[in-house]
């Protein structure tokens, strides 16, 4: 899940990143603080104390923050950010998003077909990329995606929902038999990842 900070100091953003690390085991989803605010952002924290407020695009899921939140409105939270409030708003954000997802996307027999990859891959986590890679060559049910990627069903649903919201996912209209899983020779699963790691190291990427 992608979280952005609107008109915060860099030190506040760093503090938020530290908080997320501390709260990792308590959060229902993994959150990442990103710089860019686009239509696909999952949540935006807005600093109401900024002396020159800049407008945000409509329709974003936002949480207002202020040094004196009680002077603002009931949903406003403290700035500097507090762990308990961050935990609540992030988990609530997931719950709100997950409810329609479960109804709309997770039809157990529905087979999802990827129409296109996102135009930008910033903010798509590794597990989302695995799901995209799985759907690149075949339509698959949620259960098949879970089996192919090892990603938790709830997380698969969130990614599928996000793809569908962007118009990148279709439900296969015909009954499409699953493509046979081709094992590349007598090799172990994940060996391409090992190869990519090797090449990455040779080309100067950190391990």
């Amino acid at each position: 899940m992608r979280l952005a900070c609107h008109q915060f100091l860099a030190t506040d953003v760093e503090a938020l990143r530290s908080l997320l690390r501390l709260l990792e085991s308590y959060l229902r989803n993994r959150w990442e603080v990103v710089e860019r605010i686009d239509r696909d952002i999952d949540l935006v924290l807005v600093n109401l104390d900024h002396p020159a407020p800049a407008p945000l695009p409509d329709g974003l899921n936002r949480i207002d923050c202020a040094a004196r939140p009680r002077l603002r409105h009931r949903a406003c939270i403290h700035r500097p950010l507090r762990a308990s409030e961050i935990l609540t708003v992030l988990n609530d954000a997931v719950s709100a998003e997950a409810r329609p997802v479960c109804a709309a996307v997770s039809a157990p027999t529905g087979r999802h077909r990827l129409a296109a990859w996102p135009l930008q891959l910033d903010g798509w986590h590794d597990d989302a990329l695995r799901i995209l890679a799985t759907l690149t060559s075949r339509a698959a049910t949620q259960a098949e995606i879970v089996a192919a990627t090892g990603v938790a069903p709830a997380r698969v649903d969130v990614v599928l929902s996000r793809l569908r919201d962007q118009g990148l996912l279709e439900l296969a209209t015909q009954r499409v038999p699953p493509a046979p899983r081709i094992v590349h020779g007598n090799v172990v699963p994940g060996r391409w990842r090992a190869l990519a790691t090797r090449v990455g190291r040779l080309l100067g990427l950190p391990a």
């Binding site: 990329l129 890679a133 690149t136 060559s137 990842r193 990519a196 090449v199 990455g200 080309l203 990427l205």
Partner: peptide, 23 residues
């Protein structure tokens, strides 16, 4: 950029690890 090309290779390997191709 060698690091950019490493990302390309990584992506290709991701497709191979998780995809089915009629090789």
């Amino acid at each position: 950029s060698r690091s950019d090309l490493a990302q390309v290779f990584r992506m290709l390997c991701l497709l191979l690890d998780h995809g089915d191709y009629p090789v």
